[in-house]
Simulated assay, not measured.
Amino acid sequence: MPSNLARHFLLSEDVVFLNHGSFGACPRPVFETYQAFQRELEAQPVAFLGRELTARMRTPREAFAPYLGTSPENIAAVVNATTGLNIVAQSLDLKPGDEILTTDHEYSALEKTWAYVVRRTGARVVTVEVPMPLVSEAAFTEALLAGMTERTRVLFLSHITSPTALVFPIERAIAAARRRNIITVIDGAHAPGHIPLDLDALGVDYYSGNCHKWLMAPKGSAFLYARPQMQGILNPLVVSHGWTNQSKEPGAMGALGNSPFIDEIEMQGTRDPSAWLAVPAALAFRKEHDWDAVARSCTALAQETAARLTERTGLAPLSSPEFSAPQMVAMPIPDCDPLAIHDALIERYAIEIPVFKWKGQALARVSVQGYNSPEQMDLLVDALSDLLDLARPLSQAMS
């Protein structure tokens, strides 16, 4: 049975939900706060969106910025990390022959974003193969350094990878890029609420992360961080009331009273800002339930589950433990039709989990959140064993 924390979530009891990493799950009290903002908006839309919104949008920035290791002036609300990273990618003044250095573990939507930028600018993407299994920070960093040339203009990395669920040790690579005047852009979609962040100390130029995943805020809440010296080159994807024709130097005033960076990105026409406004409620929920302790338990359960499946498959993990995302593990499984396995898990066991191939290797990516339980992990390991015809350990087979 799920742990008693499951009662705080809205997830269907008919599904064993082991896929928090894809879209997250919002706790009931946070979702109720979100809906309260929506009702308040509908009760007086002109006051909410016309007279009060600038001040309202500031409150989540002030609550969230210390959690990110920066100041409220360095983050702007966006609807998801893909949007934030598109703002950056489409703002960069790239020329034919310029290089965007990245890895073979990136999220497909962002691979398409850079392909679009390449088609428009004549730049090119250079993809580094990360040494696998990932067991050494030095090997990871050296592979990236070897890919840097005098033509490298951008270093684009995931902090936590989506397909392989690895935590990339990005600190030294970012520092090396900074010394070479290479712009650093980090996809932090899975990072907030999952791993500690100190963005100012990291020294990154641009970083975008989702709040709707591991932070457990409602869908439609995310942020874009920009180092103060790099804010001025950004352009909004939509030009609206927040746009200004004035100076974008640090300290300049935007059209709505914030910096141009914040005003231009946050004010892009009528939309529902309630998800972003509920971010402080998500932070409060985490604090009330000591979510750091919950996360430690989830991490232990995720790693234990991966180890049990490894024992049955005999397949080596993708990384040593320190490079595995704490609550999310991509577990190698024998060659199979991943869609058939995924569908069978849903239809026969009511288990929601992604199963796919990455570079020819079949993977099942399990997420463990506070609403999950050891019994659910037992069910997953046994279900995969049945579907993949895996032998159980002798001690279990004889019991």
Rank of each mutant, 00 (worst) to 15 (best):
S247D: 15
T270H: 03
N245K: 13
N258I: 04
A252R: 03
G251P: 02
S247Q: 07
G254C: 06
P260T: 06
M253E: 15
T270M: 12
P260Y: 05
E264D: 12
L256T: 11
F261T: 01
T244W: 05
E264Y: 02
N245I: 09
M267Q: 08
D272M: 05
P250A: 08
L256P: 05
M253L: 15
E249A: 15
F261Q: 01
W243A: 12
Q268P: 00
K248F: 13
E266G: 02
Q246A: 14
A252S: 15
T270S: 02
I265S: 00
M253F: 09
F261P: 01
K248M: 04
G257V: 13
A255G: 04
W243V: 06
R271Q: 12
D263M: 09
A255Q: 13
P260Q: 04
A252E: 05
N245M: 11
T270D: 07
E249I: 12
P260G: 02
P260N: 07
D263H: 12
E264G: 01
G257F: 13
W243Y: 14
A252Y: 03
S247M: 10
G269P: 06
D263W: 03
G269S: 11
Q268Y: 13
G269K: 12
P260S: 04
E266W: 03
T244R: 03
D272A: 05
E266F: 10
T244S: 15
K248S: 06
F261H: 02
I265D: 01
E264N: 04
E249N: 06
N245V: 12
E266T: 14
E264W: 04
P250V: 12
Q246D: 13
I265N: 00
N258L: 12
R271W: 14
D263Y: 09
L256I: 11
D272T: 08
G269W: 13
Q246I: 01
R271C: 06
G251F: 06
D263K: 10
G251H: 10
E266N: 06
T270P: 00
T244P: 01
S247A: 14
K248I: 07
L256H: 10
P250T: 07
Q246F: 11
